[in-house]
Design a protein around this nucleic acid. Structure first.
Length: 388
RNA sequence: GUGACCGUAGCUCAGUUGGUUAGAGCGCCUGGUUGUGGUCCAGGAGGUCGCGGGUUCGAAUCCCGUCGGUCACCCCA
């Protein structure tokens, strides 16, 4: 047996129905707000992500599907979408402010578990160019409308991590603090000290809680200006009745974020989407000087959160005579009536069973020219009028 | 990257201390039965026991490796 590649998924049956629902709802909602669809390549130069996500990040150091192509280029299967959109913006719309959406497969070489796969889909929205408070508000607001359209229960967590410089200063202080308390930290947190100091704040370990609680807080290191920006967004959310949870420990993993960061968490505690502001990304990549704010949703994570969806087809065609079956199909097609039919002309018994198991309401029996209602167990003669 | 558990028919699983042609239920197919029908009866198809190596007279069963699955840490969507 040749098995599927580790961490990949076959999306079929019920899953495919949910996938399509998310895909269609995402495009419907965001396109209605004027976001433009961009399908960027799955393949990118490794350099793009090394510079954007950060040379020391786990994604770049351990998780990229990377290879040299036949001409010796360093190529990766994209691990995220924002960097590609920023590259696209610089190449095509540098002097404009644009709203973009994308939907597609991403790849990260991680050990798979629930809500984490090696090949997964992200749906993302970005506003790139000259970005302001209103841009921030609408990305959050439009995201909320998207999730609500899927009948998802979720909470918005929000934070500011200040400018890149402020964060550097804070990280240094934090490093000093944790270093002096190193022995009291869990092993996991000790490992994070050197490369990912900020992320210690996110630790779930009980042993870490007290030390984290006593750690210097981010907000003390932020400038008036940074706090002011953050507070005006919060005020706006308050005024518009958008509920949120201020979470001082919300630290996003990607290096390019500054100031605003946020996450959408399902009622089951799963992060279904997240995003933030990235004002320096274009400069880091050396492709311009513009800002951005974006959000990305994990499609598989949302699939795992939404409930069963009922199919809408009503009619199932059965029969044993190939010619009559085809004639009925022609009639139904001309009336634009959707219907299902057996893959082959098996036993009538089997066809009845199939219709029942697929939960159809009506059986059109082409052997007898009748329509049977499986819910009420009544049969009427077939006529165009009897179809509704 | 670390750790735990797992892999026998399409599905859920049985398989006794290693011992003949590897089983069951459900599902599937065929014939009949029913003929407001989906029931019931009979028969049938379907398995490189995830893959490779080793131990043994003999391996689904023991050992090693590998691939895959589930979950957690870590990471993040």
């Amino acid at each position: 047996m040749i098995e599927q590649v580790k961490g990949t998924n076959n999306i079929d049956g019920e899953l495919a129905v949910k996938y399509n629902l998310i895909h269609n709802t995402f495009y419907k909602i965001f396109k209605s707000y004027g976001y433009e669809q961009v399908i960027t390549p799955t393949l990118e130069h490794a350099e793009l992500f090394k510079k954007s996500i950060g040379e020391n990040s786990e994604i770049v150091t351990k998780q990229m599907y990377q290879f040299k192509d036949k001409a010796g280029r360093d190529i990766v299967l994209r691990p995220e979408g924002t960097s590609s959109l920023v590259r696209y913006h610089a190449e095509n719309n540098k002097d404009f402010t644009k709203k973009y959406i994308y939907f597609g497969q991403m790849f990260r070489y991680e050990n798979p578990q629930k809500n984490r796969y090696r090949e997964f889909s992200q749906a993302g929205a970005e506003i790139i160019g000259n970005v302001d408070l209103y841009s921030e508000f609408q990305v959050i607001n439009d995201s909320i409308n998207f999730l609500k359209s899927l009948n998802l229960e979720f909470k918005l967590n929000i934070n500011t991590i200040g400018s890149v410089k402020e964060r550097e200063k804070y990280t240094k202080e934090l490093y000093k603090y944790f270093r002096s308390n190193l022995k009291k930290l869990s092993k996991e947190s000790q490992d994070k000290l050197e490369n990912n100091t900020l992320r210690i704040l996110d630790s779930n370990e009980k042993t870490d809680l007290k030390i984290i609680n006593d750690a210097p807080t981010m907000y003390k290191f932020l400038s008036e200006e940074s706090l002011e920006k953050f507070n005006s967004l919060l005020l706006l959310l308050d005024n518009k009745g958008i509920k949120y949870q201020k979470n001082e420990r919300l630290v996003r993993g990607l290096d390019y974020y500054n100031d605003l960061t946020f996450e959408f968490i399902s009622d089951q505690g799963v992060v279904v989407g997240g995003g933030g502001r990235y004002d320096k990304l274009s400069e880091i990549l050396n492709i311009g000087k513009f800002q951005g704010i974006g959000v990305a949703f994990g499609v598989e994570r949302i699939i795992n959160q939404i409930n069963k969806i009922e199919t809408s087809n009503k009619y199932y065609l059965i029969g044993s005579n190939i010619s009559k079956m085809i004639n009925y199909s022609i009639t139904l097609d001309s009336l634009n009536i959707p219907y299902d039919k057996p893959a082959r002309l098996s036993k009538i018994n089997s066809q009845f069973k199939e219709a029942k198991s697929k939960n159809y309401q009506y059986i059109i029996n082409t052997d007898e020219d009748t329509i049977k209602n499986l819910r009420t167990n009544t049969t009427v003669k077939f006529s165009k009028k009897a179809l509704s």
